[in-house]
Simulated scan of single mutants.
Amino acid sequence: MKKVNVTVLGAGSFGTALAYSLGNSGHNVKLWMRNEKQYEEMKATKINRKYLPNIMLPHTVDYMLDIEKALANSDIILLAVPTQKVRQLLIKIKPIVKKEQILVNVAKGLEENSHLRISEVIKEALDNHPFAILSGPSHAEEVGKDMPTTLVVAAENKEIAEYVQMVFMTSVVRVYTNPDVIGVELGGALKNVIAFGAGIVDGLGFGDNAKAALMTRGIREIARLGDSMGSNVYTFAGLSGIGDLIVTCTSMHSRNRRAGILIGEGKTLAETLEEIGMVVEGITTTKVAYELAKKRNIDMPITEQIYNVLYNNHDVKESVIKLMSRNKKQEIEEIYEEEKIEW
C-alpha cells in the first residue's frame, strides 16, 4: 500500500488514536496541537497523558505547533477538533490549504447557531474543498489498543471515499464506504443525544428494559429527522447509525453516556462538565436537534425531553413519565410510514 502524508489537526483522544493507527501502518503523520505544554510533553514521551494515557505513539508520528509547517506536503488533513471549533480552524487554514489536500472530518456534531453539518461548514468556509466524513463505532481507547474496529467513510466523490478507505484500512481497522454524507453525519451526531439519555437512564437506576426502549425508539427519531433532511434511512441501520448508537449508549468510554449518568444522579450541568473534563458533543447537539425538529415539524419526543432536562431544568423522572404517557401507537405502522400495514 502506498504510504501517504497525513496531518491530524487536534491532539484529543480520537485524533491521537488515529495518529497512532495511521503511524503504525507506516504513513507519515504530523500531529498538530495548540497547547505548548502538551506539545513538549508528547514530543518527549510520545504519550498523550491527558487524553490517551499508556499508549505510546510510533516513531512515524511527528508533533507540531506551527500549523503551516504541519500542513506542508500533506495528502490528507484530518479535522479532529470539537464541532464548535471546526469553522474557526478552517478559517485559520484557508490561506495555506491546497485544493489537492483532502479534508477528512471525524467530529460528530452539528454547528450550534447555523444548524449546519460539518460538510456544509467546509463548503462555506473553504469554497467546496474536497472532503470526506469518517464515522462509526470507534472509541479512541480501543483504537489505540489495536482492538478490531469498523468505520465508514462518506463523500460526495466516490474516488475520494475509496482513497480515504484505502489509507485508513489496517489489519484491525476495517473501513466501508457510503455515498450518503447527510445520513452518516447525522447518525454520528444525533446518537450522542440518545447516548446522553441512556446515561440518564443508568443514573436513575433503571434497567436494561428502559435502555433498550430508549435506543430502539431513539434510532427511529434519528431516522425520522434524517429522512426530512434528505438522507437515506437505510444508512441509520449501518455503522454510523445503529452501530455507533450501540457503542455510545452502552460503554463507559462514552463521555456522553457518562455525562448523562451524572445528570441522572442529580448533578448539575456545570458539575457534570467539570467532572467529565472534556467536550460533551451531545449537549450542544441536543439543542440543535431540538431546534431542527421544531423547524421541520418532526416528532422527536426523546430529544425534546432531554432538551428540557438540559435547558429548561425539568426533573429527569418527570421527563421519563411524560415519555411513557404519550398516546398509544402501532410500532410497525410508524416504522413503515410509506406502506401502512393492516391486520
Score class of each variant (00 low, 15 high):
residue 229 M to A: 13
residue 230 G to C: 12
residue 246 I to A: 05
residue 242 I to G: 02
residue 208 D to H: 08
residue 191 K to V: 09
residue 221 E to L: 07
residue 251 S to F: 06
residue 302 I to R: 06
residue 221 E to T: 11
residue 280 V to G: 06
residue 304 E to Y: 11
residue 243 G to L: 03
residue 184 V to W: 02
residue 239 L to D: 07
residue 215 M to H: 07
residue 233 V to P: 14
residue 201 V to H: 03
residue 234 Y to L: 15
residue 244 D to T: 10
residue 307 Y to G: 00
residue 262 L to Q: 05
residue 210 A to W: 06
residue 220 R to L: 15
residue 208 D to T: 05
residue 219 I to P: 00
residue 210 A to K: 03
residue 286 T to H: 03
residue 221 E to V: 08
residue 311 Y to W: 14
residue 200 I to R: 05
residue 182 I to R: 09
residue 239 L to R: 09
residue 224 R to V: 15
residue 240 S to F: 06
residue 294 K to G: 05
residue 306 I to W: 12
residue 294 K to V: 08
residue 306 I to E: 11
residue 249 C to V: 06
residue 203 G to C: 07
residue 232 N to F: 12
residue 277 G to T: 10
residue 302 I to L: 15
residue 299 D to T: 11
residue 251 S to I: 02
residue 312 N to R: 15
residue 192 N to G: 09
residue 188 G to D: 08
residue 231 S to K: 11
residue 253 H to R: 02
residue 278 M to R: 12
residue 272 T to W: 04
residue 314 H to D: 15
residue 221 E to K: 04
residue 218 G to F: 06
residue 250 T to L: 10
residue 214 L to P: 04
residue 253 H to S: 01
residue 223 A to C: 13
residue 193 V to L: 08
residue 235 T to W: 03
residue 272 T to D: 10
residue 279 V to I: 15
residue 268 T to E: 06
residue 307 Y to S: 02
residue 285 T to L: 10
residue 284 T to L: 09
residue 299 D to P: 03
residue 272 T to G: 05
residue 299 D to K: 15
residue 210 A to G: 06
residue 297 N to P: 08
residue 225 L to T: 01
residue 316 V to L: 08
residue 251 S to N: 06
residue 240 S to C: 11
residue 182 I to K: 10
residue 241 G to Q: 03
residue 289 A to R: 04
residue 228 S to E: 15
residue 199 G to N: 08
residue 278 M to W: 11
residue 265 E to P: 03
residue 310 L to W: 08
residue 237 A to V: 10
residue 282 G to H: 01
residue 261 I to Y: 05
residue 294 K to N: 10
residue 304 E to W: 09
residue 295 K to S: 12
residue 213 A to N: 08
residue 206 F to S: 10
residue 269 L to P: 00
residue 303 T to S: 13
residue 287 K to G: 02
residue 260 G to N: 08
residue 256 N to R: 09
residue 211 K to Q: 13
residue 230 G to M: 14
residue 255 R to Q: 03
residue 272 T to K: 06
residue 262 L to H: 06
residue 183 G to K: 11
residue 201 V to R: 00
residue 192 N to E: 10
residue 225 L to P: 02
residue 253 H to K: 05
residue 302 I to Y: 08
residue 238 G to H: 05
residue 233 V to M: 14
residue 190 L to S: 04
residue 292 L to T: 03
residue 275 E to A: 14
residue 214 L to G: 00
residue 231 S to P: 09
